[in-house]
Nucleic acid binder design. Structure first.
Lengths: 112, 112
DNA sequence: CTATTTTATGTCATATTTGACATATTAGAA
DNA sequence: TTCTAATATGTCAAATATGACATAAAATAG
């Protein structure tokens, strides 16, 4: 029942293309949403790691608590740009963000 | 003369914070722009690798040639979201995007 | 070189994102 | 439990991104 997943995403506000006959997400759409969710998840985990409230983080990036909540929920109303800026403000490096996407568990890993 | 760099970015449309006394970009702003430029650079190189014109790529993502040009130039008027969607449409994987950010030269590298 | 294709740049109406705010829900402590 | 801090959810005006279009500049043939 892929219909379920599709509905959930659309309720969240994602615009999903008509895709295949079985109404599955095409791989690109899956990957795109996956990337957003991983990034937003990192925002949440890093904020917590630093013991900050959403309110504190919001001030640090010149935004509001509700925006941070939406960002951490991966809502489509928040951009990857804002998420990346937020991660950087949290002290997360470009390399760490890269490692998140490659699936490497060690955030500070660097290839030879 | 960091002033120069700052001016160039502002002419391009980037909004730069007041930053330090020497009007340098704070590290986060540097990193953010760096990330955007690396991503946009990958769009350009991958499009070329596939022998596509900007017009062709534009059609593939439901956009326009001018938007692709701006994206490849890393102009602030184009979002990371659009760049990522574009890369995925070009067949670039999440892992490859990650490797770009970690600085790994081999796009298909995966850590043990 | 000239013609043709490709890419860059500027503008604009529309669409989406944004911070701010109110308020609901949840988590955690006493 | 009740009280309180934290987080989630909904709305909205302002800010920003977007596709489309025109046209300039640059690249590439021929």
């Amino acid at each position: 029942m892929k219909q379920q997943k599709r509905k959930q995403l659309e309720e969240k506000g994602f615009r999903i293309g008509s895709a295949s006959d079985f109404l599955e997400l095409i791989p690109e759409e899956e990957s795109y949403i996956e990337i957003r969710l991983e990034i937003s998840g990192l925002v949440k985990s890093q904020r917590r790691k630093r013991g900050w409230t959403q309110q504190q983080l919001a001030r640090a990036i010149g935004s509001s608590q509700s925006r941070v909540a939406k960002m951490e929920a991966g809502e489509p109303s928040t951009s990857l740009d804002l998420m990346i800026k937020t991660l950087l403000r949290l002290g997360v490096s470009k390399t760490q963000i890269g490692n998140l996407l490659t699936g490497n568990l060690n955030p500070d890993f660097e290839p030879a």
